[in-house]
């Protein structure tokens, strides 16, 4: 990257150690970095110079990161905003996502992820916020468009999972202690939450081998059968105490809840 092509990054954090460490990392990665320790200072700098991206903390002494990213959204709508915080919460994540930030990362930050997010923007593509979308619809779109993307899903209860989509197929998923298909199905069974797309990185291992569409259909089937089982249990709260009958036997409808499949 030549000097004149260097992209400008504004790094805002009152933690001087972090500014020094992250700043050096970004400079070595080929960026020109300007730093400051408060949102107010950052606005003054942003008013006079243009930047490729803003990387900011939330908790700062005078003008905090939320006010800064709101200012940036209003006044520098094309600038990429990456947010770091040591005080993460589900509600803060949601507020940050809605503000249009590209990345919400909790400290200690994953330096490679920040770099991937900064580099991802060079592609000829859009980013944005989508509200009130069914996760199945989004996954269907990712599969149909055959994109390579890492989708991070966070449930309302704070449970978190990642699915690695590789050109129409899910190659790997992780969610808590689960990996592979079980993790994929778990992520798609979340009842509300947020998701975001992270730039592609090869997973450490390939744990899913069925096609993306097959996984999606199977996830829908499992979700439906779980809801049915829940509603049956609600309908029959007093039955079967002291028996050793399994759930499927209790339903007595001969339904098959096996996850077996065949490929003809």
């Amino acid at each position: 990257m030549s000097m004149c092509a260097k992209q400008q990054i504004l790094l805002v954090d009152d933690d001087s150690d972090l500014v020094w460490g992250l700043g050096r990392f970004l400079i070595r990665a080929g960026y020109a970095v300007t730093s400051c320790g408060d949102g107010g200072e950052a606005v003054l700098i942003l008013e006079t110079r243009s930047f490729h991206a803003l990387v900011t903390d939330i908790q700062m002494p005078h003008v905090n990161g939320l006010a800064l990213i709101e200012w940036a959204r209003q006044n520098r709508p094309t600038m990429r905003v990456l947010v770091m915080t040591a005080f993460g919460s589900t509600s803060l994540r949601e507020v940050v996502s809605r503000s249009g930030a590209t990345l919400y990362a909790e400290k200690p930050v994953d330096l490679d992820l920040i770099l991937r997010m900064l580099r991802a923007e060079t592609r000829d593509s859009f980013s944005g916020i989508v509200d009130d979308i069914d996760l199945f619809d989004y996954v269907q779109l990712v599969i149909a468009t055959k994109h390579q993307v890492v989708m991070e899903v966070i449930s309302r209860k704070g449970e978190r999972g990642q699915v690695f989509f590789d050109r129409g197929n899910a190659r790997h998923a992780a969610c808590g202690d689960l990996v592979g298909e079980a993790a994929f199905f778990r992520c798609l069974s979340f009842e509300g939450g947020t998701f975001r797309s992270l730039p592609w990185v090869d997973p450490d291992q390939a744990t899913i081998h069925r096609s993306g569409e097959h996984m999606l259909m199977e996830a829908a089937r499992i979700k439906d059968e779980l809801s049915r089982d829940k509603s049956v249990q609600l309908d029959e709260p007093e039955c079967d105490f002291g028996t050793d009958g399994g759930g499927a036997e209790r339903h007595g409808d001969g339904t098959n809840v096996s996850t077996d499949f065949q490929i003809g």
């Binding site: 096609s211 259909m217 199977e218 089937r221 339904t255 098959n256 065949q262 490929i263 003809g264």
Partner: peptide, 15 residues
């Protein structure tokens, strides 16, 4: 493509 079959209640779902 390959036929994919899911075991749903009563009958299979194919695609």
């Amino acid at each position: 493509s390959k036929m994919i079959s899911l075991d749903t209640a009563e009958e299979r779902t194919l695609f």
